[in-house]
Amino acid sequence: MRWDEVDELLRAALQKEVAEGVKRLEGLEERVIQELARRPARESLWQRIREFLTRPTPRWALVGAMAALLLGFALGRLTSPSPIPQWSPNLFVIAAPGARSVAVVGDFSAWQPLPMSDPDGDGIWTASIPLPPGRYEYAFLVDGKWIGQDPLAEEYLRTFGEYVSVRYVGGSRENLSS
């Protein structure tokens, strides 16, 4: 018997198994619609933030200030870039018109976000990062969204459905150390 027959048997058996239970799904559409209609409409995060800012109370302002201070510290610790070795500079560029924040993450930052800048406001964000020779995987974060395919990259890898870009830097035979 060829493998193909096992494959066919498997396909047929699984179809039969699902088919036997599928009658339970009659009327599922209505049940889902009723359940969704019963639930209160969910406000978007932005709506909730806007509501908060337009209807403040002093007590919550104080609590908010404390929380924001702590959050600021926490974010600061998490997003602070690590020291980068001083080798030749390398430029990372991404077009992100209208973005509020853009960062690059990669092997060179141990995947911590390094902020990029757009001083003239033309939507072209850049970061110049001194890098020693090597092969680097990286991606951009545009308003927190992972952008893994840099048109300037030499290769891409697809990991768990997300892309990362790859570029090779340098050409000298300096030994690396970390």
């Binding site: 198994e17 799904l25 559409e29």
Partner: peptide, 23 residues
Amino acid sequence: NGDLEAWGEIVCRYKEAVFAVTL
């Protein structure tokens, strides 16, 4: 845009396939 009838159509199309995953 909040059209539940449209979502009901999606449920109708995919319920068997989703059921196979959960099963």
